[in-house]
Write a protein that binds this DNA or RNA. Structure first.
Length: 185
DNA sequence: TCCGGGATTTAA
DNA sequence: TAAATCCCGGAA
């Protein structure tokens, strides 16, 4: 039976809804010598009317992908040394994305530390070449497949981390008591 | 063309 | 608390 990725309809919804539902889904990354499959355990939402969102200032080359159809990867370079992975949401023409902040490998024996948006991209070798890749296509070396269902009471909410605008919006979501989530600032 | 800030991380 | 380190976007 062929491996199946999440359908585009999963991503073509309001950003906050997609952010919540991404928790528990599995990010699959095929590297040259190994394959990594890890559960999404921490995310943040960014929307069109959100001053903290890269797309807030309008269409720019960097965040062009966010304005396109949902389900694609939006990867950006930050602080001169890190990349961050986002999943594009909303219908075509409306910008929106969910930042993947932490992952957890099902087998805890792994040495991979996948907490922190910069660190997980570094370890999964995700860079600007991944920008614009479809995450709904299991033939890709980077995609998202269905994981487990998360109950609402398992999700913790907090303000987003590291931003200077709209700092009060409670748009960070993560699995309660999960050891892989970023430390609070 | 120039300049400042940034959805981070680490170490002291 | 600060340094590392560089792309992007707005100002000039």
């Amino acid at each position: 039976m062929a491996i199946k990725a999440l359908p585009t309809s999963f991503f073509e919804r309001p950003t906050l809804e997609v952010a919540n539902h991404l928790l528990g889904q599995v990010l699959v990354r095929q590297l040259d010598d190994r394959i990594v499959q890890a559960e999404i355990v921490e995310v943040e939402a960014y929307t069109a009317d959100d001053p903290a969102c890269h797309a807030f200032a309008g269409r720019r080359p960097r965040c062009e992908v966010m304005f396109g159809p949902p389900g694609f990867a939006y990867v950006y370079f930050i602080y001169g040394m890190y990349h961050c992975l986002n999943v594009v949401t909303e219908v075509d023409g409306v910008p929106g994305a969910v930042l993947i902040r932490a992952l957890a490998e099902p087998k805890s024996g792994s040495q991979l530390q996948l907490n922190g948006p910069g660190k997980l991209c570094r370890q999964l070798e995700i860079d600007l070449q991944c920008n614009g890749l479809p995450l709904f296509d299991a033939k890709q070396k980077l995609y998202i497949k269905s994981g487990r269902t998360i109950k609402e009471e398992e999700i913790a909410v907090s303000p987003r981390i590291g931003i200077s605008k709209a700092v009060e919006r409670p748009w960070r979501f993560y699995l309660k008591d999960h050891k892989s989530v970023s430390r609070r600032k």
